[in-house]
């Protein structure tokens, strides 16, 4: 039953994400938006360095930005399902009375965003390799590390999304800001688009406390090994150490997600928030 709920939720999410237009416009939408975001950073970099794309800083920025798209897709995707179902479609109460597990349903809803996000990440990286000299050599990629890191990251983001979904259950009117605020904070402090040592010293501990920092570092290392050595922030750590830290943080995120969602879910039922609409 759990698998069926998850599969159906994923299919529903896909329909909601994609069937508002024809496949061509949807494909354009899925390509233009992420490429434009990446292009802003490319132009900024190019203007200052006169197009010196061979510096290790460029793949650091470019790959960090590309993989960061998963944060918006998966984490915000899970929590956004609460707002979408409760406020927009007004179906959350029906989901609650259906014989399904709500956390699994919410994670299933994010699968469509994960798929479209993966497409965006792929297109962005291919564009970077073909036109901007991002030095990814398929023969030198550490595929095992890449796949393990990617999967761990997706699990982590889904768990963080579940925590946010729980909190969103208790919020009105500003629920959609919550996902953006967390995603924006992670973008700034996790060294997604600049090395952590650029941050003021008093802010760096925040970066080291964020699991996304280690996740992005692992992904960069798996694709372009030389990038890791170029920046001092995490270069002293081995891949194994980074994986161990990430695994520990995932366990912590799971505990926080379960406790937070259960508590918020209980509170939302107690206060009658499951079918509340606020005309956001």
């Amino acid at each position: 039953m759990n698998l069926r709920s998850f599969r159906t939720a994923a299919w529903l999410g896909w329909k909601i994400e994609s069937n508002w237009t024809d496949p061509f416009l949807f494909a354009v939408y899925s390509i233009v938006k992420p490429l434009s975001g990446a292009a802003i950073l490319v132009v900024m970099y190019s203007v200052i360095t006169n197009g010196n794309f061979t510096d290790p800083l460029f793949p650091y920025i470019y790959l960090g930005n590309a993989f960061y798209m998963y944060v918006g897709a998966v984490m915000t995707g899970v929590s956004w399902a609460i707002i979408d179902d409760r406020e927009h479609y007004r179906t959350l109460k029906y989901m609650y009375v259906a014989p399904i597990r709500i956390p699994l349903y919410l994670i299933g809803r994010a699968v469509a965003r994960f798929l479209t996000g993966s497409f965006s990440v792929f297109i962005t990286i291919v564009f970077g390799v073909l036109f901007l000299h991002v030095p990814i050599n398929l023969a030198e990629v550490n595929w095992l590390l890449f796949i393990i890191s990617l999967l761990m990251g997706v699990v982590l983001l889904a768990l963080m999304g579940l925590t946010l979904a729980g909190v969103t259950l208790l919020l009105a009117r500003h629920g959609d800001y919550l996902g953006d605020a967390v995603a924006g904070g992670l973008y700034l402090f996790s060294g997604a688009v600049f090395p952590l040592d650029v941050l003021p010293a008093w802010l760096r501990p925040l970066g080291y406390a964020m699991p996304i920092t280690y996740w992005l570092e692992l992904l960069r290392r798996s694709l372009v090994g030389s990038v890791a050595q170029a920046f001092p922030s995490l270069s002293a750590m081995s891949n194994g150490q980074l994986l161990a830290i990430l695994a520990g943080m995932i366990v912590l995120a799971a505990v926080i997600a379960v406790i937070t969602f259960r508590w918020c879910d209980y509170q939302a039922r107690e206060r009658g928030y499951i079918d509340r609409t606020t005309n956001y």
Binding site: M44, Y45, I48, L57, A192, V193, F194
Partner: peptide, 10 residues
């Protein structure tokens, strides 16, 4: 802030 730090980094 993120874009400012990008400019500082480069």
């Amino acid at each position: 802030s993120a874009y400012v730090f990008v400019y500082r980094a480069i």
